[in-house]
Design a protein around this nucleic acid. Structure first.
Length: 559
RNA sequence: GGCCCCGUAGUUCAAUGGAUAGAACAGGAGACUUCUAAGCUCUUGAUCGAGGUUCGAUUCCUCGCGGGGCCA
């Protein structure tokens, strides 16, 4: 039983002894360190039941509590809070645990034995990989790692739109303007041209619609140019996944899901779940408080909705999953509500285990990003910018052959941090001109703190000072008081699908470490506390490294 | 028009219904010639408006205003 559970158990017992029932004691970490390590408001909540003033009741409760192992002091404060101050011994033991557990520090068993699929990133071949995909990848990868951290087996999936109107728009321009389908940049330009023509030129619209039909029909004459464009796009995406630290287990494609979706739609029509309307097939979402969406067009082609049905089913046929999670931007919230409602009627067992998690959008400070307007910030260009700045900053240091790899890690860290520092659902206002920060609250700041700690540990080895908990100073550092909370943070981040709890935690931790580092000489042969300080540094480095891993950010040894 | 999300320092973000609303950036001041200055210390500055629920509201509810998104 961990310390929080011990305190809660003691509180429950004390409440019982005072004859108060039906009040569940909740523990929190006070905002202010002066208020202890844990606090409970249970006395405020129970005062009414006990018919006493909150403060008086809190005093009685503290009397009834007696002592709790690991707690040095219990105090009543403010309007009736009960504050718990943990003991020197507790923290020293905790630091020792972190050092001993190492890379497993922060892991839980919340999802032990479960098999969970995460689908995320979802870029479309024939279109560019833009910062929105970067965002989806960042959020999805972090959630996947948080899930693995809880003991589950995670299956990573990527769903890519290799058929549909966007492909037709691109191919139309490729054929017309003689673009090279092997060249990803030319494909991007072709898509922009096709999309623009589709809106403004009725003739072009007709031609594009025809190409779309031919693609669905498997027209052989389009095959070579289609295949070239598709593989060029996919190869380029693969380079990015490697850089970003994602390795997918499954790749799904819309071209495959189309026929499956049409089957499911046909089945749904027979069962009265879908209905025909004006030649198309729709699902009347109004019956469950939503809106109507089209699942099969008048022309008989499957819509995104139909393909999604096929995809959701396929996932469970392919893998024995306990849950399937789909991560997308929140512009798809409405889409998923309706599709999952239809799925709940069609395949209830699949729908019940499928969950859609959405994140905010990357919003440019200069206006909405659109490939037609040509103001798309691509994943590659953003990473390249950051990499150049990292290299510039590293120029004074001799990092040799590792430089390129370190610069990549820093670039990715800067971007991922920006995404993961805030609540998942919120939009990110991105200013392409003022580039991302390497200073203050930033990914590189976290990495830098970690490398500093490793530097200290290196020096400790040189000076032959080994980590030891024997001589802990009487003063308990704030760093210790925050380090032990790490598993609580990872658990909460997973439960709420909010990686930013990890991010803000790591920022606080790094600040405390850097402050302590500036104040104390850690490696000092003349200081009897030095072995303890080295252990504390080790505990910090371990926590930071594990925490960064959860965010999908590499922790280089040097930078 | 219908539905969904979001409004917190100048800016970008935090805050589990709790105690004095925290950081970072920008601005101002400073220390150190010691394990990486991508750092540290100090400092100026904020809950969109009106009601309601509650012992207590940035947080929950209603209405309004403002921004974003989705659907016809």
């Amino acid at each position: 039983m961990d310390i929080a559970a011990r305190i809660v158990a003691a509180l429950e017992k004390a409440l019982q002894s005072l004859g108060v029932e039906g009040v569940v004691p909740a523990l929190e970490h006070p905002n202010d360190f002066a208020h202890g390590d844990y606090a409970t408001n249970v006395a405020l909540a129970a005062a009414k039941v006990a018919a006493k003033s909150p403060k008086a009741f809190a005093e009685e409760l503290v009397q009834a509590l007696g002592t709790v192992d690991g707690v040095a002091k219990i105090e009543v404060a403010g309007p009736g809070f009960i504050n718990f101050y943990l003991s020197r011994k507790f923290f020293a033991t905790s630091v020792a645990d972190i050092v001993a557990v190492g890379s497993d520090w922060g892991k839980t068993r919340m999802l032990g034995g479960k098999r969970i699929m995460y689908e995320y990133t979802d870029p479309n071949p024939f279109k560019v990989f833009h910062i929105g995909h970067l965002m989806s990848n960042t959020v999805g990868e972090s959630l996947a790692r948080l899930t693995e951290n809880a003991g589950a087996t995670v299956v990573r999936a990527n769903y890519q739109g290799d058929i549909g109107p966007h492909v037709a728009k691109c191919l139309w321009a490729v054929l017309r303007e003689g673009k090279d389908p092997h060249n990803v940049e030319e494909l991007g330009a072709a898509y922009a041209a096709g999309a623009a023509a589709y809106e403004t030129d009725p003739v072009a619209k007709g031609e594009i619609d025809t190409i779309n039909q031919r693609l669905y029909a498997g027209d052989e004459t389009l095959k070579s140019v289609y295949d070239a464009g598709r593989s060029a796009s996919l190869a380029r995406f693969e380079e990015l996944y490697a850089l970003l630290g994602t390795a997918f287990d499954h790749y799904f494609f819309e071209s495959v899901m189309g026929p499956l979706g049409l089957q499911l739609v046909a089945e749904g029509v027979q069962r009265g779940i879908f209905e025909e309307s004006d030649g198309a097939v729709v699902y009347r979402g109004e019956k469950v408080g939503l809106h109507t969406r089209v699942f099969r067009t008048k022309a008989g082609t499957p819509t995104y909705e139909a393909k999604e049905l096929g995809l959701d089913k396929t996932k469970f046929e392919l893998e024995k999953l306990d849950h399937s999670v789909i991560v997308t931007a929140n512009e798809q919230d409405g889409f998923f509500k309706v599709v999952l409602a239809a799925l709940a009627e069609l395949l209830p067992d699949v729908a019940q285990k499928t969950r859609h998690i959405s994140h905010g959008m990357m919003v440019l400070s200069t206006g909405k990003m659109s490939s037609r307007k040509g103001n798309v910030v691509t994943g590659e260009s953003l990473i390249a910018d950051m990499r150049a700045r990292a290299l510039e900053k590293m120029s004074g240091r001799e990092l040799g052959a590792e430089s390129a790899s370190i610069a990549d890690a820093i670039a990715v860290a800067a971007i991922k941090f920006e995404v993961l520092k805030q609540g998942t659902g919120k939009n990110i206002v991105f200013d392409p001109d003022s580039s991302l920060s390497f200073e203050g609250d930033s990914g590189p700041y976290l990495q830098y703190s970690h490398t500093r700690a490793l530097s200290v540990l290196n020096k400790a080895r040189e000076e032959k000072i080994t980590a030891s908990l024997a001589m802990a100073p009487d003063t308990i550092e704030l760093l210790e008081r925050v380090l032990f909370r790490f598993p609580e943070v990872t658990a909460r981040a997973l439960t709420e699908y909010e990686p930013h709890y990890v991010t803000t935690y790591l920022i606080e931790l790094a600040g405390l470490f850097n402050s302590w580092y500036a104040r104390e000489k850690i490696v000092d042969p003349l200081d009897p506390h030095s072995p303890f300080k080295v252990a504390l540094t080790q505990a910090f480095a371990t926590t930071m490294k594990n925490g960064l891993w959860l965010l999908g950010i590499r922790a280089p040894d040097r930078m």
